[in-house]
Amino acid sequence: MDSLVVLVLCLSCLLLLSLWRQSSGRGKLPPGPTPLPVIGNILQIGIKDISKSLTNLSKVYGPVFTLYFGLKPIVVLHGYEAVKEALIDLGEEFSGRGIFPLAERANRGFGIVFSNGKKWKEIRRFSLMTLRNFGMGKRSIEDRVQEEARCLVEELRKTKASPCDPTFILGCAPCNVICSIIFHKRFDYKDQQFLNLMEKLNENIKILSSPWIQICNNFSPIIDYFPGTHNKLLKNVAFMKSYILEKVKEHQESMDMNNPQDFIDCFLMKMEKEKHNQPSEFTIESLENTAVDLFGAGTETTSTTLRYALLLLLKHPEVTAKVQEEIERVIGRNRSPCMQDRSHMPYTDAVVHEVQRYIDLLPTSLPHAVTCDIKFRNYLIPKGTTILISLTSVLHDNKEFPNPEMFDPHHFLDEGGNFKKSKYFMPFSAGKRICVGEALAGMELFLFLTSILQNFNLKSLVDPKNLDTTPVVNGFASVPPFYQLCFIPV
């Protein structure tokens, strides 16, 4: 009986604490739906499609509103004006990374994606500088992407125009580009180590996009005490870190300090320079996690976009025909596509942009946080508050993009057929937390897609009208449904 009384008292205290925290903070924060004790607004949000729920709530509470995930307040920004004001106009104040408990377990605050403060700034600055020195957006990395595009075309030829699921092959190409940047090595598509790495990356994007992960991140005790797919994700990350550590040891034994070959060499050189400046942010643990982040951000996002792009091109054969006509006119058949071609191919450029806009790969991006107490639109948001960005509300804005739910390359073309930029184009987020590999991803999408369409016609196994382009999961990332196609050599 005594234990029951204690339990009831504990629960009562928890409920009172929950109510007090919510009521004391709500006077400062933007308005929002009334949260339930302990669980907050979790029942009012469709976990399978958070973005749709945010759109519905914005119609009631406006472009800036507050939700509670458990006891934790989260300020939501919906629509271009609110997102721009926060991420661009007040970029420094909104540059923090929001709480992501599962990532905390995986990387302990290291790396480039989930770190904060001085650690994040130094690692991000170093990573950007190193990638630029190796030619991100310049010639040397373009050579690597072109080489991988040629290998991709050869792998597709091996399908002999038979029906195939493109998931694996389209994942190999961007993964190999990242391998060449980090390890100075590309792998054969049949290499077992490479296959294991690909498998872990593919599993992780599916797990991260599941409703279960949303629950884990908002009720963090689940991570330590409950079984579930989150444990598989943590094991996959541990596998990748151990693999990278092996490569780091190989580099330490063979590195030429006067001739760095890749990202690992550059990081080890930085560690050597910083060894007298303790404590340094440049450690082996930081290198492991930064490399894992580059793999995660640079492989599955690009391969998922490529997979979605081919599905949309199957669905819209008239678009595919126009792209192939432009390829034939500008590039021809006797040389590989290059980035200089893009400025002469406005329709193809528009298609690449429209694919990214339409699929809305990361509907709410990753959570941000404010780095200080900030007054925002007459609300006071306390330091450390998590900020949720609705990228969907920007990419699918119906004023900027008429009929935003329709796939239409003319969203990025003017009346004369010239490519038209849009400030609403934010597939990689915006501001200080914009994806480090934005330029690389854009290069890969253009070169891989043009190389495929230069060499193959795409054949659907069903009537294009019957192809479903609805994402199968739409949590962290929008993942396309399973499909097969035939690559018919031109």
Rank of each mutant, 00 (worst) to 15 (best):
S3F: 12
L7M: 12
V8M: 15
C10A: 15
C13W: 06
Q22K: 13
R26Q: 10
G27W: 12
K28Q: 11
K28I: 14
L29C: 04
G32E: 00
P33L: 01
T34A: 08
G40L: 00
Q44V: 11
Q44R: 08
Q44A: 09
I47N: 13
D49E: 08
I50V: 12
I50E: 02
K52S: 13
K52M: 10
N56A: 15
V60Y: 09
F65G: 01
F65T: 05
F69V: 13
F69P: 02
K72N: 07
V76Y: 04
V76F: 08
A82M: 08
K84T: 13
K84M: 10
K84G: 06
I88D: 09
G91E: 11
F94S: 05
R97I: 07
R97H: 08
L102W: 15
R105T: 06
N107L: 08
R108V: 10
I112K: 14
V113S: 15
V113R: 15
S115P: 08
K119R: 10
I123V: 13
I123H: 12
S127G: 07
M129V: 13
T130D: 06
T130G: 08
R132S: 14
N133I: 09
K138F: 10
R139W: 10
R139D: 06
R139E: 07
S140G: 11
I141S: 04
R144C: 12
V145D: 00
R150Y: 05
R150M: 13
E154K: 08
E155I: 04
L156N: 00
K160Y: 09
C164S: 05
D165G: 00
D165W: 01
P166M: 02
T167E: 07
T167D: 05
G171D: 13
G171E: 15
A173L: 02
V177M: 03
V177L: 06
S180V: 04
I181G: 01
I181C: 06
I182R: 01
I182P: 00
F183G: 04
R186C: 02
Y189C: 03
Y189M: 04
F194Y: 11
L195E: 11
L197D: 01
S209V: 05
S209K: 13
S210V: 03
P211D: 07
P211C: 08
P211E: 06
Q214R: 11
I215R: 03
C216D: 02
N218V: 13
I222F: 09
I223P: 11
F226M: 11
P227A: 08
G228L: 07
G228S: 08
T229N: 15
H230P: 06
K232D: 12
K235I: 06
V237M: 15
F239K: 10
F239G: 11
M240N: 03
S242L: 04
I244L: 12
H251K: 09
M255E: 07
N259V: 07
Q261S: 11
D262K: 02
I264A: 06
D265L: 02
C266L: 10
K270S: 09
P279V: 14
S280L: 08
S280R: 08
S280Y: 06
T290V: 13
T290R: 03
T290E: 03
A291P: 03
V292N: 05
F295I: 12
G296S: 13
A297G: 07
T299L: 09
E300P: 13
S303Q: 10
T305I: 05
L306W: 00
Y308C: 06
L312R: 00
L313E: 00
L314T: 09
H316P: 00
V319R: 03
T320R: 14
V323R: 00
I327K: 00
E328Y: 15
R329K: 09
P337L: 04
M339Q: 06
M339T: 12
S343C: 12
Q356P: 01
T364P: 02
V370E: 02
K375V: 07
N378D: 09
Y379A: 05
Y379G: 02
Y379Q: 04
K383D: 03
K383G: 06
T385K: 01
T385V: 04
T386M: 10
I389E: 04
T392G: 14
V394R: 11
N398W: 09
M406F: 15
D408A: 03
D408C: 07
P409V: 08
F412W: 05
G417H: 07
G417L: 10
F419Q: 02
K423C: 12
M426C: 10
F428I: 06
S429E: 05
G431C: 04
K432M: 14
I434G: 07
C435T: 05
E438R: 05
E438I: 04
E438F: 06
A439M: 09
A441W: 04
G442C: 07
E444C: 00
F448P: 00
L449M: 05
T450P: 01
N455H: 14
N457F: 07
L458Y: 01
K459L: 07
V462G: 09
D463V: 05
P464S: 06
N466P: 03
D468A: 12
V472I: 15
V473P: 14
V473L: 14
V473W: 14
A477T: 09
F482S: 13
Y483L: 02
Y483N: 02
F487W: 04
F487P: 00
I488Q: 14
V490W: 09
